[in-house]
Structure formats: structure tokens, C-alpha cells
Design a protein around this nucleic acid. Structure first.
Lengths: 159, 159
DNA sequence: GAAAAACACCTGTTTAAACGACTATTGTCT
DNA sequence: AGACAATAGTCGTTTAAACAGGTGTTTTTC
């Protein structure tokens, strides 16, 4: 082992501020996500699926093409098909192939889907309330602004 | 459909601040995570595995029991065994069953593991620099503080 | 107007996550 | 000492994520 390696070997006890920020983001997200997923779990749905249903609900009564839906998802889903398969199996969405362009499949939320969304709304709101309710509105807005600012660069040149 | 349901049907265009905060957290995390995973991908490792290696490095030269390692992971891993299997297959860690308590398996990072950690250090630092470098230190510290504050409740009564 | 390119989605396959049940070892209680 | 409970890790199985390649459809190009 060279002297350089020996030096590099002792990792800094405190990471850079940037690294620390990422770790805190990770930890916090993970913590809150776990709680959220427990709520979704009771309704036999994943947060991704919930996200998709919400997007469909917002679009309704218009349908959304699979690709359009995919682009709007928060977490990029490389396999929309099978995710929609699962939602369809639960009768929460419906798919129809468009007639004037038979390549695209249009997705709509069903009544059952809307109903599920309504049933899940309150528990989810309560969950977020538990998570962030103890922070005053000013701090929340600040947090939101900072998170947006952090993403701004990433959105502009990367991705 | 009842009148109540019809009302509940139109979801609010703007969610509660709490919900908005969670969404921003999700989006930001997802965005940054994706970039980080590309870096890890070049080294054929996942962020979870990196996390484990770092913990082992911090403990070294002492070993860490599987359970101790599991508890320190950021994202709770319900299957340490197979994750360690993969690291062991890459010769990045070593496992030895403890003699005075043959139930526990002690894990140590190998030389190859340390070396990988050293090689990956710079690209990762650069990644976080790209992600957060454009924010002034004051804002970063504020972000860190807010993220910690958000977690505080979740840590105290839940989990 | 036929061939090639582009598009939108689907499918096959490999890999890892998740959940429980299971094995081996140690500690506790009478 | 022997039964019972607790602990530490492993393994089996189901389910979903990821990636690449494939199919049918439309648009473009010559």
C-alpha cells in the first residue's frame, strides 16, 4: 500500500456538506416512505401505482396514453406494461387501443379506481400530517423551496 | 354516486403543504438517487451495498455482526444474508462465525473492499458536488436542519 | 408506392426485493 | 439437568424491478 493510499484510507469522519445533505435526504425520505407504504399496503397498492392512479384521475375523464403516463411518473418506470397489468387485474384502470392510431393504448381510471382513491385520501393525508404536521408552515415552505432548488440543476443539464 | 362523493371526487388542485413537501422530497430524492446509482453502477455495486461497505470500513479493523450491520443500514434490509452473499462473491467482504457465540456471523471488509471504496470515493464526491454544489453552504445547512427536523417526530414515536 | 426508419407498446429473461418459515445455538427458569 | 423461550442467521418462494430484444403500426423518404 502506498503512502497516498494509506492517507486516503482514513475516511473523513464528517463528510462534505454536500454528502451530508444527500444522506439526510436519503434517511428522511426512507423514513417517511416506509410509513407511507404501510398505508398503501392496507389498500393493496404501491406508491407508484397510487401515483399513476392520481395522474389518471387528474386527466379524467380524458384518457392518458401509456407513454404520457410514464413520462409523468415521479419514479421513472421502465416497465409500464406490467404495472398497468396489475392495476387492470384489480379493475382499477381500463385500457383501450386507440382507433386512429393503433399503436397507442389509452388508459383511464375506472369507477373502482376512483373509489379506491377516495377511500385512501384521508389516511394518506393523515399520514403526511403526522409526518410534517409538527413543522410550522413557514419551515415547510422553506423546505419545499430548498428541495426545488436542489433539483433545479439536476433538471436543467442532467436527465 | 352521492353528493358527498361527487364533492370528494374533485381532488384539490393544490395539495396540503404537507403533501406537497412529501412530493418534493420524493421527486428530489428520486432525481438525485438516479444519478448516484449511475456512478455506483460503473463499479457494479448498489447504493445499499456501498452503504454496508462504508459501515464496515468505519468499524474496521473490528468486524460487525450481521445484525449490527443490518440495524445501521439506512434503508432497512430484510435480507442481509443474500446481500452479503453478493458482496462475498465479489470478495469485498469476509464472513466468519464467532467462536464464543456460534450464532453470530462477523463480517469484515476485505482489502479488495477497501480498495473499491477508495476508487469510488472521488466519483461519488463529484456526484454530490454536482448535485448540491450550486447551493450556498448556508442553504445546505438549513436544508439539513429541516430534513432532520422532519424526521424527528417520526423517530420519536414511530419506528 | 415500396423500403426504411421511427414509434408505442409488449414480452422474455435475469436479478434482486420481501415475507415467512426454518435451523442452529444460547440463555432462562424451575 | 431438562424444557422452553429467545436470539442470529439462513433458506424457499412469491413478487416485482430492470434491461434488452421483439411485434405491430405509422410516418418518412426516395
Amino acid at each position: 500500500m502506498t503512502i497516498d493510499e494509506a492517507q486516503a484510507d482514513r475516511l473523513p469522519k464528517f463528510d462534505s456538506l454536500q454528502q451530508q445533505a444527500f444522506l439526510e435526504l436519503w434517511r428522511t425520505y426512507d423514513c417517511l416512505k416506509a410509513e407511507e407504504e404501510m398505508v398503501f399496503g392496507e389498500f393493496e397498492i404501491s406508491s407508484q401505482q397510487y401515483n399513476a392512479l392520481r395522474l389518471l384521475k387528474t386527466a379524467s375523464p380524458s384518457p392518458l396514453a401509456v407513454s404520457a403516463l410514464g413520462q409523468r411518473m415521479i419514479t421513472r418506470a421502465p416497465d409500464m406494461t406490467r404495472m398497468l397489468d396489475r392495476l387492470e387485474r384489480q379493475a382499477l384502470i381500463a385500457r383501450v387501443r386507440r382507433d386512429d392510431n393503433r399503436r397507442v393504448v389509452e388508459v383511464t381510471i375506472t369507477q373502482a379506481g376512483s373509489k379506491l382513491l377516495r377511500r385512501i385520501a384521508k389516511p394518506i393525508r393523515a399520514c403526511h400530517q403526522r409526518q410534517f404536521g409538527h413543522l410550522p408552515a413557514g419551515q415547510l415552505m422553506e423546505l419545499i423551496a430548498l428541495l426545488r432548488a436542489a433539483r433545479k440543476r439536476a433538471n436543467s443539464d442532467a436527465r
